[in-house]
Amino acid sequence: MKSLIIGFFSFFYQANLNHENMQGTGFAYLIRKAARLKGMELEVKKVHEQTSYFHTHPYLVNFIVGMWVREFEQNGEEDFHKKIYSSAFGALGDSFFWHSLRPLCFATAAIAGFYNPFAGIISYLVLYNLFHLSFRFTGFRIGYSLGRDVITFFNRIRFNKWATYFDIGSSLMLGILLSYMAKSSADFNSVLLGTLTVYIMLGMALAKKLDIVLGLTVIIITTGFFLYITGA
């Protein structure tokens, strides 16, 4: 229950995001709430100290809050470990949630949206929040139970590999989406299939070799030129 309460309060964690102390104010707010839930009243000075520079992924912050409270209870080095985990969870969270989960959710929603736009929106929200809320609402409990060894939880579930697996999933989903679009939008024949395959491979090669945005730009310009020439 305490983990759920902290999970709820963590929705306000980024409310005072700024360049000077980043999310330090939000962290101090969460620490105070969490300590109270554990029957402790932190000194004003201690809470004020927590407003110093702090920046981590918002979905994983509760793991650090749990770890901090546990270390504080046991007279550990809560502030030292807070600093280390803030950057580590920033790395893990950004890679997975921002750069891998979102594209996968988009590809899933796009496929579902072909059948029903409403299903597309719902599938995005369900898939994304399944992961987001799971981490947000269990973070405090796990962080508190493992303390400064909270990284072992992430090692156990091999979290640093999830981004790679999800990227593969996204590529697969996009492949399905493109195949479906090609099949449903034109007279499907072997020439069209061959042209599309070469086209996609060329796009991927450009994106890999140069840059995704540049690759996309080149493909769009080429397509526009091709359509202009053929009068399509």
Binding site: I84, Y85, A91, F154, N160
Partner: peptide, 13 residues
């Protein structure tokens, strides 16, 4: 050692 393990756990394979 703990800090080393934490940073090692954050890198992609």
């Amino acid at each position: 050692p703990l800090q080393k393990m934490i940073y090692a756990s954050t890198l992609p394979p």
